[in-house]
Computed example of a mutant assay.
Amino acid sequence: MRSLRRHPLLVPALLCAFAVLAARPTDGGDGGAGEGAYGSADSGISGQVARLYEDAAVATQRYEAGRLKTEGQRARALRVEALLDRERRESAVMREDLGRIARAQYRSGGGLPLTAQIILADSQDELMRGQHVFSQTQLAVNNAIDKSRRAERRLAADEAKAVAAWQALEQRNAELAGLKRDIEQKLDQARRQLQGQADASVAAGACRGAVRLDQPRKPVTNAWVAPVEAYTLSAGFGSGGARWANRHTGQDFAVPIGTPVRAVGTGRVVKVSCGGAFGIEVVVEHMGGYYTQYAHLAAVTVDQGEQVSAGQWIGQSGTSGNSTGPHLHFEVRVTPEMGSAVDPVPWLAARGVPLG
């Protein structure tokens, strides 16, 4: 089911700096503790993914703004095309009028020389009337010719404008598409590297120290939040499947690798581990005797024993462990360990966080 609570993946912020803390062994439940810390390559990839998410969000905003602008250009170009059609019809009518006037002059003898008109005129009044008719006819012809020439010049100018408008439209669309494609390619490559490092950690059964990434500048004001900002709900609590021994024990959020994962509420990190079905996981203890688990991660940004606040990044989503694709497995438990899970959807809804 598609989430109705759509937001950009990241709050627009400049994610340009991050520090690597010295390694602290983590007491790993499933996979045990690991030694060492994330090296510069590890933290570099995590930070690169986070920055690329920010770039992708900005690029998407630019693309949408550009798309709206190109829609306006398209409307203007269509108006120009409609104007051109009208001007072409008017020019055709003018040409027909000129032809009709020329044929009428030929039939009426309107082109007789002045000397012949004087000789053939029966009276001065007839001569003056003839001259008046001739002058009026000549004026009509000259006006028609001038009008036709102006229309032809205007038509040529408007045709050039129409061509330029369509060319500008196509060029802008190509530039925006290229911008998005370049960022998406870089992000896809960085995601693969990040997941590769996560798989290596899971294979070794050893978690490394936290990768420290700058948090969004916009603070979270709610006491409870969803574990990811933008998502599609996939497997729900209690659903059946070949990959679970009994029933699914949490709620899955389908999100791309590297998506920032947030603590849903204030608490203390009681577990950071690697290995086993959950791959890289983080468990947070909250007031009231509840625990939340965040599994199949690609990286962690907190250490065991650390205090966290609602909305704080505690990891990056992935597909480590027993996972068929990128997603966050989220559980609410009454103990830190597997087997005590409750349905997280009504649990979050009761705290003002509806999912859907």
Rank of each mutant, 00 (worst) to 15 (best):
G240I: 01
D158W: 04
N142F: 09
P336D: 00
A151D: 12
S320E: 10
G66C: 12
A160W: 13
Q293T: 07
S108M: 15
L127A: 14
V272T: 09
D42V: 06
W244F: 09
A121E: 03
N246Y: 08
G258F: 13
A350Q: 09
G47F: 06
V220G: 03
A140S: 14
Q124M: 13
Q307W: 14
D182H: 10
W224A: 04
C16Q: 12
V255A: 01
Y291R: 00
G339I: 04
V272N: 00
A33P: 14
A254V: 03
G32W: 15
G289M: 05
G99V: 07
V58L: 15
A277H: 00
A349V: 00
Q138H: 11
Q251W: 05
G315S: 04
G205Q: 04
Q193P: 02
A230M: 05
R217C: 03
R153V: 05
A57M: 09
G109E: 10
E87A: 11
P12W: 06
T249M: 01
Q73P: 00
E81W: 08
K161V: 12
Q197H: 12
A230I: 08
G238F: 05
D125C: 00
V342Q: 10
S3Q: 10
K271A: 09
L213R: 08
G205L: 10
S148P: 01
M338I: 05
P216F: 02
M128Y: 12
L187C: 03
V308R: 02
P336H: 01
A350V: 04
A59E: 06
A349H: 09
S309G: 06
I101T: 06
F253M: 08
T221N: 09
A17V: 14
Q193S: 03
E96I: 05
K180M: 15
D125V: 10
A92G: 07
R268A: 00
V308P: 00
G44N: 08
G196V: 02
R88S: 02
F278W: 12
I45V: 15
R74D: 11
R6C: 05
R172V: 08
E126S: 10
P12S: 02
E331A: 01
A299C: 14
I101H: 10
A206N: 03
L213Y: 05
E285M: 08
Q189C: 00
A177N: 13
G29I: 03
L355E: 02
E90K: 13
V284F: 06
A245R: 14
P260Q: 07
P216S: 04
R154P: 01
A75W: 09
A174D: 13
I183F: 10
A50C: 07
D214I: 02
I118V: 15
A299N: 10
D199A: 09
H248E: 11
Y291D: 01
A116T: 14
Q167D: 15
L348H: 13
Y38L: 08
A57E: 15
K180D: 03
R79Y: 11
T324A: 02
G34S: 06
T324K: 02
R76K: 10
G196K: 15
S46R: 00
G130M: 01
W347H: 06
M338K: 03
A242P: 07
V302M: 10
A230R: 15
A23E: 09
V220D: 05
F134V: 08
T26V: 13
A162P: 04
V255S: 08
